[in-house]
Amino acid sequence: MPRIVDHAQRRAELTVAVWSLIREQGLAGVTIRNLSQRSGWSSGAIRHYLPNREAILNFAAGQIGEQAWQRVQSVPASSDPFQDFLNRLEVTLPLDEEGRVWLEVWLAFVGAAVSDQDFADAQGVLYRDLNTIFVGAFETFARQGWLPAHTPQAAATEIHALLDGLSVHLLLRQITPEQARTTLETALSRLLTPPDSG
């Protein structure tokens, strides 16, 4: 009887191996040979999923967006829309080990994107994915009267830029998680006003 291959599990294993290479050696350290050594897979098995270095890096970049999406979607809803949105924004920050891992990989791609259009395009996908989530949330707030002084796009751009800056400061250990949370909550409070508070 043929063995059943769990492709989702294999992709998860590859993600862990590729990301660990990037975190330790940067993007330059990502080769099929290094990935084979890190993952314990044969080169042939890797090529079945990712035929070359470009495919490996595109896969690694794509997994960043997927992780971000899963983390945002995993936040449970409550009766407090402000707190729910704040909680969703917080999980995009490197406030725990899981968040730190994927944001360290993200930062490696950001550095490469400065001089490489392919990496800039990959980062653009992640930016657009998150920006779409943020704009959609602010559009909902605007319809409900929470966003009196900004357009949803302007609010999304402002909060997205803040998240990027806080992420870098956290990764460099220049601020504490509590400082990041407080800064984010203060900024969101300036953007969103409950409609019955006026």
Rank of each mutant, 00 (worst) to 15 (best):
M1E: 08
R3V: 14
D6M: 02
D6W: 04
A8L: 10
Q9C: 02
A12G: 09
E13P: 06
T15G: 02
A17I: 01
A17M: 03
S20V: 04
S20C: 02
I22G: 03
E24L: 11
L27K: 10
G29T: 13
T31G: 08
L35C: 06
S36W: 00
R38A: 11
W41Q: 07
S42R: 04
S43M: 13
I46D: 01
I46E: 04
R47F: 00
H48E: 11
H48S: 13
L50H: 01
L50E: 02
P51F: 02
N52P: 01
R53L: 00
E54A: 09
E54M: 06
E54Q: 15
A55G: 02
I56L: 07
A61T: 04
Q63A: 09
I64N: 04
G65D: 10
Q67N: 15
Q67L: 13
Q73P: 01
S74T: 14
S74Q: 14
P76N: 11
S78C: 03
S78T: 15
P81T: 08
N87F: 00
L89H: 08
V91Q: 05
V91G: 09
V91C: 14
L93C: 05
P94S: 08
E98S: 09
E98V: 05
R100V: 08
L103V: 01
E104N: 13
W106F: 13
V110C: 13
V110W: 02
V114N: 13
D116T: 10
F119Y: 15
D121P: 00
G124D: 13
L126D: 11
T132E: 13
I133Y: 11
V135R: 15
E139M: 10
T140V: 07
R143G: 03
P148K: 09
A149Q: 12
H150T: 06
T151F: 03
A156T: 03
E158I: 11
L163V: 13
D164F: 08
G165L: 01
S167N: 07
H169C: 03
L171I: 10
Q174N: 14
T176A: 08
P177A: 02
R181P: 04
L184P: 02
T186W: 10
S189Y: 03
L191K: 03
P194A: 13
D196I: 00
